[in-house]
């Protein structure tokens, strides 16, 4: 399906499978739907089901209510560039910190960036990490309640990683991560560093820890939870966000350049939005006659999930289906409502 501006998309299948990873986690890997938890925090990422599934989030919330000392761990890769897909996790962390006064640990794995060749030098990894810290503080995280662990700068984390490494074999790493013997040993060791990031607060007097992550990252959590149990720690809880597709409806990635990056200039963002995959018809006449399909329209997807209340989104979808609203108008709305002009 194209749109009246003549923009053609190649597939809308990704939108339909946005939560496929989450559903797979529930059906095959023992995660639970977030909708089963009563009394979820009143925040848009829960209300809109952007946080779709979990592991032990109910236990974590109970511990929080009982006055136990709870932390959140939310990591970042030093080669990463913050984009719209990260917003639900960032916002959830920020909400939890502000609402409940939770301490946040934010590991930045510049060591993994280096051993996996995502950065070319260790120095590049450190520099990227420091810039990311600046971005995250600017985002609003409280510096009194947020601790950044940059692996090249806080190498103490390796002491815990070495301890945990006795509980993880190369066969297990291979099975979960798919590493092959020709890949460097730093990469093969890294899963224990990642588990150390998550378990770290539990070694510093915290009673429970929560990790909000993308559904595709749950395999790391399964390794970490097994390790935690082996060493006598509580199994860290997890919240799984849904997978946010890029503006072309496919997996959001730097290489596809289909995401909206937080520091992108206005002109570039506008171009991406106006080229977003749409659920419109090939011409204005056809669109007016046949109507559009909001279920595969990326501008609508972003508006619904990030900016609009439920009734506003439903009304917009209805106008689109009836052909009252054109794809170009939907895109313009997304561009204008986002105030991308900075």
């Amino acid at each position: 399906m194209g749109d009246e501006n003549g923009k053609q998309g190649n597939s809308a299948s990704e939108i339909a499978s946005v939560t496929a990873d989450n559903i797979k986690l529930i059906k095959k890997f023992g995660a639970s739907p977030i909708s089963e938890i009563k009394g979820l925090p009143d925040f848009y990422t829960f209300g809109k089901m952007l946080m779709y599934s979990h592991r032990d989030f109910d236990r974590y919330m109970k511990n929080l209510k009982d006055g136990k000392k709870c932390a959140i761990v939310s990591g970042f890769n030093a080669s990463g560039t913050p984009h719209m897909g990260h917003i639900p996790v960032f916002d959830t962390n920020l909400f939890m910190q502000r609402k409940f006064g939770i301490d946040l640990f934010m590991p930045i794995s510049d060591d993994e960036s280096y051993v996996s060749n995502k950065v070319s030098t260790q120095e590049e990894g450190i520099k990227n990490s420091l810039l990311l810290v600046r971005v995250m503080i600017a985002y609003g995280f409280d510096t009194k309640k947020t601790k950044f662990i940059i692996d090249h700068i806080y190498t103490n984390i390796y002491n815990l990683a070495i301890k945990l490494s006795k509980g993880l074999t190369l066969s297990e790493v291979k099975a979960v991560y798919g590493y092959t013997p020709d890949q460097n040993i730093g990469l093969q060791f890294y899963p224990t560093v990642q588990s150390a990031h998550i378990i770290f607060p539990l070694t510093r007097g915290y009673d429970d820890v929560l990790v909000p992550i993308g559904a595709d990252e749950d395999s790391h959590m399964r390794v970490c939870r097994d390790l935690a149990a082996k060493f006598g720690f509580v199994k860290p809880a997890a919240l799984h966000s849904i997978f946010m597709p890029g503006l072309d409806g496919e997996k959001m990635s730097k290489s596809r350049n289909n995401g909206i990056f937080l520091f992108e200039d206005e002109k570039s963002i506008k171009k991406k939005i106006m080229n977003a995959f749409s659920g419109g018809q090939a011409s204005i006449e056809e669109h007016r006659k046949l109507g559009g399909n909001p279920d595969v329209d990326m501008a609508y997807f972003y508006l619904k999930n990030y900016f609009l209340e439920r009734d506003e989104a439903e009304s917009l979808a209805e106008d689109y289906r009836k052909g009252k609203l054109l794809s170009g108008e939907m895109k313009t709305m997304l561009y204008e409502i986002g105030s991308w002009k900075g």
């Binding site: 503080i137 600017a138 609003g140």
Partner: peptide, 22 residues
């Protein structure tokens, strides 16, 4: 937060960074 980010970024100080980085 997205809209304010660029402005806020310039306000982050070295002291903020030193406070938050382990």
């Amino acid at each position: 937060r997205i809209n304010k980010l660029k402005g806020d970024y310039s306000k982050v100080s070295e002291k903020d960074m030193e406070k938050a980085i382990m």
